[in-house]
């Protein structure tokens, strides 16, 4: 699979990474190289293989429906670059 600049731009947009125009081509080349390399997996027939989910079969652990956490809003916003009255503050969003 060869990745072109358009695909890099699209992935960068999805990943919210500002990529300068002059980096698109080198990144496309790098990504193409890596993807060409991983494509050797296509040599394997995995039609009847289940994807791996856990090392040993185990039951998903469940918590009880009890309130055991929260009520520390100051701690939640403590590291925020911008906060006000315990809200996180971000640039204006238009819906």
């Amino acid at each position: 699979m060869s990745v072109d600049e358009k695909a890099v731009r699209r992935a960068a947009r999805l990943a919210r990474l500002a990529v300068p125009e002059d980096r698109l081509a080198p990144l496309a080349a790098e990504l193409s190289g890596i993807l060409a390399w991983v494509e050797q997996l296509n040599e394997l027939d995995t039609q009847n293989v289940e994807p791996m989910t856990s090392v040993r079969p185990m039951r998903l652990y469940r918590r009880a429906d009890v309130v055991t956490d929260g009520f520390y809003a100051e701690d939640i916003v403590k590291n925020a670059p911008r906060s006000e009255d315990n809200f996180f503050v971000v640039p204006k969003v238009v819906e």
Partner: peptide, 19 residues
């Protein structure tokens, strides 16, 4: 009482970022 994947309160309202 609690959220889907955490032990914080699922109650409506509450001071900002308290639940």
């Amino acid at each position: 009482n609690a959220k889907l994947f955490s032990g914080a309160s699922a109650a409506y309202g509450g001071a900002p970022n308290s639940h």
